[in-house]
Every structure is written in structure tokens, then in C-alpha cells.
Design a binder for these strands. Structure first.
Lengths: 203, 203
DNA sequence: ATTGACACATACGCGCATGCATGTTTAATT
DNA sequence: AATTAAACATGCATGCGCGTATGTGTCAAT
């Protein structure tokens, strides 16, 4: 059954797609590799060939979509313009990505709020924690630049403010993900993140 | 081995304490009833006598501590005084409870951010969702009263604002719980929630 | 004093998903 | 054309943790 390389890459993608669906509906612990395989139209043997067991599949899944989110953040942070506007747009970008892209949405749900701490997922968790810390440092630096440029009040505790800002995004995401999409992410978050950022601005 | 009623209640408490420790370190899925039993100095038989299996134990654990949190919320919401002050104090109360009480802390971690959606926990999840919705309605009503009393700007979207406020708390909690206690909850959150609430107040 | 229920301990069976060790076919290499 | 190895499928062994059934000793009541 040796398929061509293109076919192999295709089944790999199919496995990843199935894994996304199964993991996000059943959760990691309850999901079985057999479910993933059958949904992809293969057997567990294919999974063990392409990935390093269950944990390896999960990690590969997270990496696939986390790069997309980091791209969004990186592109947003390097924009120029009025300071508050830049951050507001950044928030909007991220939330829009989550709201429209089902893949990003499911992965965000898995990585942020369903992080089951099994021993086999230790390395995955460390990876996530590093990414979160990097993001915090990035936002902190952005706020610090805002203070330096004089557009924010000098007495703003930048790191704490960055935590609150990210926490706000996370919190909104949490609310939106667990309630059955009862409200629009952007419409709810945009004016209020503006309020918060406006509170940081110097009078 | 028929212990007296007092002794039985004691072992029940011991089981709950052990369950809290084991579930919060290993997570629900990875935790085993044998670990819980051995930590409590009993066997699995005792657990099955006092509780309805693994899911029942988990549910009982959550209920034990969730009542304490709802008490805090209820007591805070019925205070009177300047509107912004009341809400600020409420936020502070909740965060203080989480920061000081290890039990509340661990349960918050389990219930909010490690909610593994196994089929056996469906009823638990529904219970949590109901509680969250009730809380949202409560905060929304409080904000609406603030608008009615004229202390908040009339154009504030109350429900969205309530979501953001709760989301902010959740987000901060999330940050604080997963990072190794690298900052003080109250010190970080208090001034910034004040900023947000001040932004809602009418000029 | 005996009985019965209580509060567990012990023992058993059971399913189930994982990991690995093989087949088996076919594409690529020479 | 023959050999190699890729890309899986299949089968097997294994362990682990849950649920329950049953034992067992002790307290309370008659």
C-alpha cells in the first residue's frame, strides 16, 4: 500500500483535520485514536506512522494553528499609527480570527481552556506557557513605548496593564466559547477594550 | 468496622480534601480513585460508599466550594454605597478569596480552566454554565441599576459590559493561576478594574 | 444477647485504548 | 527487473482503572 508522496501528505492532512474535530468535541483524554483514524478513513497504523503517538499528534495539531495566531499578533504589533488605535485593531484582529476560522477557534478552546494536565502533555504545556509569556512581554513593550511616546499616562503600571489587557481578551474568549455563541465577539469586545485603553491614555 | 457517625463524616471530609489535592494536581482524567483513597488513608470502597463514583465525587467537590464563592458574590452585590466603589470592592473580594483560600483557588482552576468535557461530566458542565449565566445576569442587573441611577453613561451596553467585566476577572484569574504566582492578584487587578469602571461612569 | 444495618475493606471481572510488532502492498531506486 | 523501503493495515499483548459484588467487623437498638 505504498502511496505516492502527495497522497501521503494528503492523508496526513486528513488525520490532522480529523484530530481537530475529535479532540475539540470529545476533549483530549476522552478522544481515542481509533475515532480519529476512522474519521480520516484510515487506521491507527497511519497515525503512528505520521505522528509520535497520541501526544505527538496533539502537539502537531497545536503547532499547526498556533503559528497562524502568532503571525496575526506579529503583523499587528508592527503596525504604526495612533497608539490606542493600533492596540484596538490588534484586539479586533485576534478576535476576528477566532470568530471566523473554525480551526483557530477550536485550537484556542483546546489550548487555553481545556488544558488537561496529563503527564504526557507536559512538554506541550511548557510550550504554551512560553508562548503566553512571549506574548505578555510583547504587549508590555508596546505599552512601554506608548508611555515613552507620551500617549499614555506616565503612572501606568505597564506589566499589570498588559496582563489585564490580555486577560480581558482571554476572558471574553472564554465567555464566547462556552456559551453557545450567544453574542458577537467583536461587537462586544471592541467598544469596551477601547474604553479600557482610553482609560490608560493621558488626559 | 462500623465507625460512629462523627467518624464517618470525618472520613468523608478527608476524602474530599484528598480529592481536591489529587484532582488539582493530576487533573480529572488522569486522577485515579485509588490515589484519592490512599491519600485519605482509606480504600476505594469508602469512596464508593460516600459518593456516586468518580463523577459524583467531583461534583460534590465542586459544590462544596462553589457555594462559598456564590456567598461572596451575593453579599457583595447587596452592599450599598457609591456604585463604582461597590463593584470594585466586589471584584476585590472575589480575587482575595481566590488568592488566600487554597481550596477556592484549586476549585476555580478546575471549574473554569480545566473543564475537560468527558461525557460523564455533562451534568457538571451544565451546572457550571447555569451558575455562570446567573452571575452574568446579576452583574448586568447591577450595571442597569447604575445606568438608571444616573451614575453610568446612558449609552453603556450593559450586557456586553458585564461580559467584559466578568471576562476581565476570569482572564486575570487565568493568568495568575497558570503562571507560578508571579504577581499579586489584587494589586494588579484592582487599579485596572477601577480604570475600566471609571470609563463606564458618566463624565 | 442477638439482630440488623452501617461503614467500610477486599476481591473479582471487565472493557478499552494504547503501543508495538508484525504483515502487505506498491512506489521509488538501481 | 530486482531490490529496497515507504506507507500504511492488521493483529497481539498489555495494563490500567473503573464498577460492583461480596466479605467483615462494629455500633445501635430491641
Amino acid at each position: 500500500m505504498r502511496r505516492t508522496k502527495a497522497e501521503a501528505a494528503l492523508t496526513r492532512q486528513a488525520i490532522l483535520r480529523s484530530a481537530l474535530a475529535v479532540f475539540s468535541t470529545r476533549g483530549y483524554a476522552s478522544a481515542t485514536l481509533d475515532d480519529v483514524a476512522r474519521l480520516a478513513g484510515v487506521t491507527r497504523g497511519a497515525i503512528y506512522w505520521h505522528f509520535d503517538g497520541k501526544a505527538g499528534l496533539f502537539q502537531a495539531l497545536l503547532e499547526t494553528y498556533s503559528t497562524r495566531v502568532t503571525e496575526i499578533f506579529a503583523s499587528g504589533a508592527n503596525e504604526n499609527g495612533e497608539f490606542t488605535e493600533v492596540l484596538t485593531r490588534l484586539v479586533e484582529r485576534v478576535l476576528e480570527a477566532v470568530e471566523t476560522d473554525r480551526g483557530v477557534q477550536a485550537v484556542a478552546e483546546l489550548a487555553l481552556f481545556k488544558t488537561e494536565n496529563l503527564p504526557e502533555l507536559r512538554s506541550v504545556q511548557r510550550h504554551q506557557a512560553e508562548a503566553a509569556n512571549l506574548l505578555l512581554q510583547s504587549v508590555t513593550a508596546t505599552l512601554r513605548r506608548g508611555v515613552g511616546a507620551g500617549s499614555l499616562r506616565p503612572d501606568v503600571p505597564v506589566e499589570a496593564a498588559a496582563r489585564v489587557l490580555l486577560g480581558m481578551i482571554n476572558g471574553i474568549l472564554h465567555q464566547w466559547l462556552l456559551s453557545p455563541r450567544s453574542f458577537s465577539l467583536r461587537e462586544a469586545a471592541q467598544p469596551l477594550s477601547r474604553i479600557f485603553l482610553h482609560g490608560l491614555a493621558r488626559p
